[in-house]
Design a binder for these strands. Structure first.
Length: 403
RNA sequence: GGGCAGGUACCGAAGUGGUCAACCGGGGCAGACUGUAAAUCUGCUGGGCUCCGCCCUACGGAGGUUCGAAUCCUUCCCUGCCCA
C-alpha cells in the first residue's frame, strides 16, 4: 500500500531545506508501513490573509506529495490566532477579525489550497475548536512548559529584543499556541517554511510535555517575490496569486530578475532537479538565453494552474505587447458620461490615474497614448463621441466612449 | 512610580522659528535602452485650481506663543532604555 521507506524519504527530501530528525522520521514511516497506518501531516494556515500565492504553493506542494504517498494531510486553519491578530513586524495594528470573518477567509483559503491538494486524505480543522476553549489556567500550564530564554532564541524575537523593537507578550505565546495545535492533532510531521523552523521545534517540545510522540519537521524554502529580494507576500505586493489570470501570471514571472530563474524553476514550476541544473549551467556558460529560460518557466507555471493552451496564449500576447508593441487581444471598454473631456480628467475618471496630479505627471512624462499617439498636453480635449483607445504606461489599455 | 531618549510622507532617515510639501536612501511609477514587466541609465513621487503661478492639507493628538512653527511652550497618547 505504501511505497518503501527509501522511496518515501526521497520524495520527502526533494526540495526540502531540512528534514529533522531524519532517523526519527524513518522510524515513523517504518511503523506506518508495518501497521498500515498513515501519518498525520500538519500544515498550519493563516486565514488572516486568505489570498494564496505561489510562495504558499511550495509547502502545499510538499503536503500534496505526502498525500500522494498515502499519508493524511491535516490542514489547520488558524482562525483563533488570526482572530487575535498577529502584530508581528512593523505593520500597523492589524484590524482584529471576528471569528465569522476568519471562517469565511478559511473557506476561501481552503478553496485555493485544494487547487494543489487533493480532497482525499485531507482533513481540515479550525484551531479555535481547542484554543478557544482553553481557560487562563490552561494557558498558564502551557506557558509553564517553556522558558523565556527558549523563546528568545527565536531569531526575529532576539533581533527585535536587541534592537529595542517592542515584543508583546502575546506574540511570545504564538509559538506555544501553534505547538498546542500539534499536540491536539497528534501530528507526526509538520511542514512549514524555513521561517517556521522555530515554531515547528517548539511543537516537538510541547508534544513531549503532553506525553505525545514528537513530530518531525520538514522545512521548505521561502520563495522570493517578483522583486527578487523580499520573500513573496501580499503586503509587499510582489506575489503571484494562485488565482491570477494566465496573462498576469505569465507577465509577473517574466518580471522576476534573471538571477531567480532557476529558483522559480525548482520551487514554482516544480521542474525536475536535473533540468534546473542544466539551465543553471547553460545560463552560466551562455548557451541558454535567460529570456528563453524565463519564458519556459513562466509557461510551466501558468500551465500548472491553468492549462497548456492558456500558457501559450499568454506567451503570444506577451510577445505581441512587449516585443512587437502591439495591442492585447482583449481590451476593456468603458463608457463615460461626457462626450468630451480633458485628458487629465479622463484618466482620473477611468481610474487609470489615482489623482489629477498623478495623471498630469504621467502625461508630462510621455506615458500616455491616445489612439497610439503620444499626448503630452494634460489639458488636451479628447472627443469621446467615437471610441478612443487609451494607453497608460506599457501595460494599461482601455477603450473609452461617451454614453 | 522616577530618569533618559524618541514618535517626520509607503518604509528607513535628515531637518531644531521663515529660503519646508520637507535633503537623502529604499520602494513605487514613467521614460530611454534591451532580451522581458530582467539589468542599467534618467525623471517623477500629498491634493486641488483659472497650471510656468496660486490655494488647501500634512511632520503622534489637542491647545498656545509668534507677522510666521515640523522646529518654541503646555498637556495628553504611544515606544525603547535605565532605575525602583
Amino acid at each position: 500500500m505504501f511505497p518503501s521507506v527509501n522511496e518515501q524519504m526521497d520524495v520527502i527530501r526533494d526540495g526540502a531545506i531540512e528534514v529533522l530528525p531524519e532517523d526519527e522520521l524513518v522510524r515513523k514511516i517504518e511503523n506506518s508501513i508495518k501497521n498500515n497506518k498513515p501519518l498525520n501531516i500538519k500544515l498550519g494556515a493563516d486565514p488572516s490573509r486568505p489570498d494564496l500565492h505561489i510562495g504558499h504553493a511550495v509547502v502545499l506542494h510538499k503536503l500534496r506529495q505526502f498525500q500522494d504517498l498515502g499519508h493524511k494531510a491535516i490542514l489547520i486553519i488558524g482562525d483563533f490566532t488570526a482572530m487575535i491578530g498577529d502584530p508581528t513586524g512593523k505593520s500597523k495594528t492589524r484590524p482584529q477579525l471576528t471569528l465569522e470573518e476568519t471562517r469565511i477567509n478559511g473557506q476561501s483559503y481552503l478553496e485555493q489550497a485544494t487547487i494543489i491538494l487533493k480532497k482525499e486524505n485531507l482533513e481540515v480543522v479550525y484551531n479555535s475548536d481547542w484554543l478557544g476553549k482553553m481557560n487562563f489556567s490552561d494557558v498558564i500550564q502551557l506557558a509553564a512548559r517553556y522558558t523565556v530564554a527558549q523563546l528568545l532564541e527565536r531569531d526575529d524575537f532576539s533581533k527585535r529584543f536587541k534592537s529595542g523593537i517592542p515584543i508583546s507578550v502575546h506574540e511570545l505565546l504564538y509559538p506555544l499556541a501553534q505547538a498546542m495545535d500539534s499536540a491536539q492533532i497528534k501530528a507526526d510531521v509538520e511542514l512549514g517554511g524555513t521561517d517556521q523552523k522555530f515554531n515547528l521545534i517548539v511543537g516537538r517540545e510541547i508534544q513531549k510535555a503532553y506525553g505525545i510522540e514528537p513530530q518531525c519537521i520538514v522545512t521548505m524554502p521561502l520563495l522570493e517575490g517578483t522583486d527578487g529580494v523580499e520573500k513573496m507576500s501580499k503586503s509587499l505586493d510582489n506575489y503571484i496569486a494562485l488565482t491570477d489570470t494566465p496573462k498576469e501570471m505569465f507577465g509577473k514571472v517574466m518580471s522576476i530578475p534573471d538571477a531567480l530563474i532557476t529558483r522559480y524553476m525548482r520551487y514554482a514550476a516544480f521542474s525536475p532537479e536535473n533540468q534546473a541544473v542544466a539551465v543553471e549551467k547553460g545560463l552560466a556558460n551562455g548557451t541558454v538565453h535567460p529570456r528563453n529560460a524565463k519564458v519556459e518557466t513562466a509557461m510551466k507555471i501558468v500551465e500548472l494552474y491553468h492549462s497548456k493552451q492558456a500558457a501559450e496564449a499568454a506567451f503570444e500576447e506577451f510577445e505581441r505587447i512587449f516585443k512587437n508593441k502591439e495591442l492585447p487581444d482583449e481590451i476593456e471598454e468603458m463608457q463615460i458620461d461626457n462626450s468630451e473631456m480633458g485628458l487629465m480628467d479622463l484618466l482620473v475618471a477611468t481610474g487609470l490615474a489615482p489623482s489629477k496630479k498623478e495623471a498630469k505627471r504621467l502625461i508630462e512624462q510621455g506615458g500616455v497614448f491616445v489612439d497610439q499617439n503620444k499626448v503630452d498636453d494634460p489639458f488636451q480635449k479628447i472627443d469621446l463621441k467615437s471610441k478612443r483607445l487609451l494607453k497608460v504606461g506599457k501595460r494599461k489599455f482601455l477603450y473609452v466612449l461617451a454614453k
